[in-house]
Computed example of a mutant assay.
Amino acid sequence: MLARARSVALIGVDAVPVEVEVDVSPGLPAFTVVGLPDQAVSEARERVRAAVRNAGLPFPAARITVNLAPADLRKEGPLYDLPIALGLLAAQDLLPAAALAGTLVAGELALDGSLRPISGAVNLALLAAQLGLPALLPLGNAPEAALIEGVPVFGAGTLAEAARHLGGSHPLPVTPPPEAQGPEDTLLDLADLKGQSGARRALEIAVAGGHNLLMVGSPGSGKTMLARRAPGLLPPLTRAEALEVTRIHSAAGLLASRGRLNLGAPFRAPHHTVSDAGLIGGGCNLLQ
């Protein structure tokens, strides 16, 4: 029997829909994952097998084929563990196929059946809002995804909880949006600085007007100290700006257990000896 689950793939900071097709058919026992998976996705076979059995759910002794569509899009990371496992249960008529197909699902499975947080929950919730679907995620990602308005987010702690939710026997509660919070109080204040009147005025003018600022001086003269206080002169980000910053942090896996928008202006302090690749990013993951 064939079952379908809906999941996502992260392309930079954008989430694109991925359909997880699971087919269970008679034949020699085998578990194949196709659809341009990377090593982490291919290893989902072992995680799913162990998690399903340790959760007390049946694992079929049959030929299992998992297709991640579209097949020409590279699939990366462990976020497909949960949709594959739920699709496997639906293919055995243990879950209603319609409930699974009408939910956006992602999550990493531990061998004992518990769910581990993933990167990009905010980006997934944005896609769910566009598609008009609820999202089923690991419990650790639920507050983060609930930042997106208008998306019912359900957080499951284990594979069994996710299965019971979709089966309708024990529905999970909708994760409430976190309370509004102001900017983080870790910003440094320009009032801490003594002297440097010319440099202070240049910094204030540059920040107020959105200009570039080049500081030249000997080591220890206060350049970095001034630069670190520049974000404290900026107003809080608008919701649109905060959402843009937050989705970048979410895709990079830097929002775990925070559950809040980044309302303060981001600040980065690369060392003066940094290379070009180290400054602008590079390699297989441009977000880190």
Rank of each mutant, 00 (worst) to 15 (best):
N262C: 11
P236W: 12
R247P: 15
R268T: 05
G220D: 04
R268K: 06
L263Y: 13
P235D: 00
L286W: 03
S257H: 10
H211W: 09
L279V: 11
A227Y: 06
A252W: 08
L226D: 00
S218M: 15
G282H: 13
G209L: 09
T224I: 07
P236R: 09
G253Q: 02
V245R: 00
R228E: 14
E244T: 01
K223N: 03
A251S: 13
G217H: 09
A252L: 13
E241W: 10
L263T: 10
A265K: 04
L233V: 08
L263K: 06
M215C: 10
L263V: 06
H272V: 03
V216T: 04
L226P: 07
S275F: 05
M215K: 10
A251E: 02
L255Y: 00
G259P: 13
P235R: 09
L234A: 01
A256R: 09
T246C: 03
T238A: 12
A227Q: 08
G278A: 02
V245D: 10
R268Y: 14
N262R: 04
V245Q: 14
A269C: 02
T224G: 03
P236E: 10
E244P: 00
L234K: 12
L286N: 01
L263E: 04
C284I: 06
L287T: 11
H211N: 11
A230F: 05
M215D: 10
T224A: 11
N262Q: 08
R268D: 15
N262P: 05
H272Y: 00
T273A: 05
N212I: 05
L263H: 07
E241V: 02
P219D: 06
L261P: 06
R229C: 00
S250G: 02
A252S: 07
L214I: 08
L279Y: 13
F267M: 15
N285H: 11
T273R: 10
I280C: 03
G217P: 15
L255H: 05
L261W: 15
C284A: 15
V274G: 09
L233A: 12
A251C: 13
L213D: 07
S250V: 08
A269G: 06
L263C: 13
P236Y: 07
G209P: 04
A252E: 08
A240F: 11
G259T: 12
C284P: 11
H272F: 02
P219W: 08
K223Q: 02
P236M: 09
L214V: 05
